[in-house]
Nucleic acid binder design. Structure first.
Lengths: 136, 136
DNA sequence: GTAATCCCTATTAAGTCGATAGGAATAATA
DNA sequence: TATTATTCCTATCGACTTAATAGGGATTAC
């Protein structure tokens, strides 16, 4: 299951992208319109800023804005920041690889074999979707 | 992330399938060879039996055996029993659909749009893999 | 200088997961 | 019949994670 963090993060990015202009958008506005806890959203946007997706302006009339064009923001990158590994088991993760303690031989592991396929097909979807695509 | 329940369940099914014959295989043997907590595996095999994947024989020389041919056991079915919904959000689940409380309109929801694609591509992998395929 | 906003850290309540415990029921076999 | 090996069932526990909350600091517009 997708975490609420990821879900809210995607919704917030979409919200900002749909505004079109480069004016900073306030947390409160997004929270209200997307029905998200404001404090929770605050921490999510902070994460997105620190990972280079959003810029921020402090103080009155401050807010968050996109740093790149929506068409340049790939879902692979967003998902990895918000949700973590895309693979369902760490032994098939490209960016977060870890050997399983129980499994002595990945080549003969049926779970490994299946999950590689899932990873690749999911990755394919994320590679082919930018923020612009899902905001349409 | 895949739960250990699912991972162990798949490994156990594979283990039984690879034996080839229809002799009951004991929990202890599987647990030992696959490095799984025996008691935990016990509950998983119970689930698989109750959902019609495995038959069991009680008492001495008892154990679990496959009810269907490995080539007739689809990963879609196994995954739904062990892991639950295949979709990452319930609002795109085919078998466990539930409306999101926050989202007023699925048609305009970017998360919905993206997750439908993920669901379909994952589903496609599971549809095209039987227990025989992953046991090879 | 005041109000609005982002920034940061800490804490908490609830839920889930993996594992464990203990014994009941059943079947093979000596 | 007694013994042993196995599945069956329910209950419980500790560790971890998640979503949310709290409180105040820093910064900026006006």
């Amino acid at each position: 299951m997708l975490s609420k963090k990821t879900k809210y993060g995607l919704k917030a990015l979409t919200y900002i992208a749909r505004k079109g202009n480069n004016e900073p958008v306030q947390i409160g506005e997004i929270a209200k319109n997307e029905h998200i806890s404001q404090k929770f959203l605050e921490s999510i946007l902070l994460t997105l800023r620190k990972s280079g997706f959003l810029g921020s302006k402090k103080g009155k009339h401050g807010g968050y804005y996109l740093i790149k064009k929506p068409s340049d923001i790939l879902m692979t990158d967003v998902m990895r920041v918000l949700e973590g590994p895309i693979a369902l088991v760490s032994c098939v993760s490209l960016n977060f690889y870890e050997k399983c303690d129980d499994c002595p031989d990945e080549a003969s592991c049926s779970v490994n074999k299946l999950m590689i396929q899932v990873r690749d097909s999911t990755l394919n979807v994320f590679k082919n979707n930018t923020l612009e695509d899902i905001s349409r």
